[in-house]
Every structure is written in C-alpha cells, then in structure tokens.
Design a protein around this nucleic acid. Structure first.
Length: 201
DNA sequence: GTGAAGATTAACT
DNA sequence: GTTAATCTTCACA
C-alpha cells in the first residue's frame, strides 16, 4: 500500500444506511484518531455487523436502551466505545438513522500512520500484532471511553476513503456463543489475504 | 444494594 | 486446547 491515493473524510450520509451495507462499505476504509499524543491511522481489514434490536448478539437486542447503549440510537456516524472483561476497550461505528441501533464492531486494522506511537502504546515491534484484535486496536489507536459518543464527522476521530476496493470475504462472528442462532450468521467481514486479521475466517 | 456475565487477550499445558 | 486477569454494566430485589 502507498499513500498516493487521495483520502477524503466520510460525510454523514455514508453512515445513514443498513448495517450490512455499511459493513461492506467500511471495509478497506481508514480510521484516523487525532490524539493528544499524535495522529494514528489504520485501514479497517476486519469487522462485524451488529443489527440492532433483532440481533441477539447486539447490546441493543430486544430494544434495550440503557446508559451504555444510548448512543446506538443516535443517527449514524458516532463512535460507541465500551469496556469488555474489565480490561479492554472495544470500538464500534454507529450506522443507520436515528432510533436504528445498527453498529459496526471493528475487529482489526492495518497500521497506516503513527506506527511508532502504536508500537510504544502496545509495547511490541511486530506490525501484525499491533491492531489484530478489537482490544489491541483500541490500545494502539489510543481509543478509550473518552471517545464514547464521539462524532465521526468531527476532528478528533474520523474515517477516510482512499478509494481502495478490497476483495471481501465473510464468515460467522466470533465469541458470541450466548447469542444462539444469531451467533452463526455470516456477519463478519474481512479483506481477503490481509496479514493483519485477528483470526482466520 | 447485590450478583452474574461478558463483541478479549496473553500465558499457560 | 484451557484459564486467569479484572471491572463495568445490567437485572433483580
């Protein structure tokens, strides 16, 4: 990959669509975080779609609307950050219109910018190990709960399009066995052949 | 107020 | 393959 292609920040319109449509469109895009320590960016190479009230794997399943999930009911283009297992942050992109709690769970990134900073935050020099998992990418990008509800159309955290069109593969989602039959749905998307995935599909 | 579970990771055997 | 680390959130009383 090189940086010769022009990169454009995605506008609000991009996020105002169905979760599965958004998932395919977001794959291959570049997540950028302008943190106090410096700027980091990574290409989205793996993600999962969570389809709102009808999806047993989704935090908003059954119309649950709590302090934590409140941001999922806002219109698309916001960040949903939460702590899992008391140790790791996970980041989601809210998509769909107001009151439609679809979201895109980011599972892996390919480091693009600020790689030295990512290595420092992660404490490793291995490029493939920097962002190859939901918890890891949040550490590398410096994403924490202060970014809960951040507007992706703002100037702290956003997503860019460099018109890269990756080949997409799909598989079942990971580690949501409690979701019953919804756990088997092919709602995980990844860039074929990427060296930076969290697990093989 | 109390208790149980979790969209993970790293270090084990 | 299994398990510990670790704490917020949610459901219930």
């Amino acid at each position: 990959m090189n940086n010769s292609a022009q990169r454009k920040k995605l506008s609000r319109d991009f996020y105002l669509c169905d979760g599965l449509v958004a998932a395919e469109k977001l794959l291959g895009k570049i997540l950028v975080h302008n943190s106090p320590d410096g700027l980091t960016a990574g290409r989205i190479v793996e993600l999962e779609a969570y389809m709102g009230e009808s999806d047993r794997g989704c935090h908003a399943y059954g119309g649950r609307r709590t302090e934590r999930t409140e941001i999922m009911y806002a219109e698309g283009g916001h960040a949903y950050v939460y702590l899992i297992y008391g140790m790791y942050n996970c980041m989601n992109v809210i998509v769909g219109g107001e009151d439609i709690p679809h979201c895109i769970f980011l599972r892996a990134l390919e480091p693009v910018e600020g790689i030295a900073l990512m290595k420092k935050r992660r404490g490793t020099d291995k490029l493939q190990n920097l962002c190859s998992g939901p918890g890891k990418l949040c550490i590398a990008m410096g994403i924490d709960k202060s970014l809960y509800g951040a507007d992706l159309c703002g100037n702290r955290l956003w997503i860019e399009d460099d018109e890269c069109k990756p080949e997409i593969i799909r598989g079942r989602r990971i580690n949501i066995d409690y979701a019953g039959e919804d756990a088997d749905r092919d709602w995980r998307f990844a860039v074929k052949g990427s060296q930076f995935l969290s697990a093989k599909i």
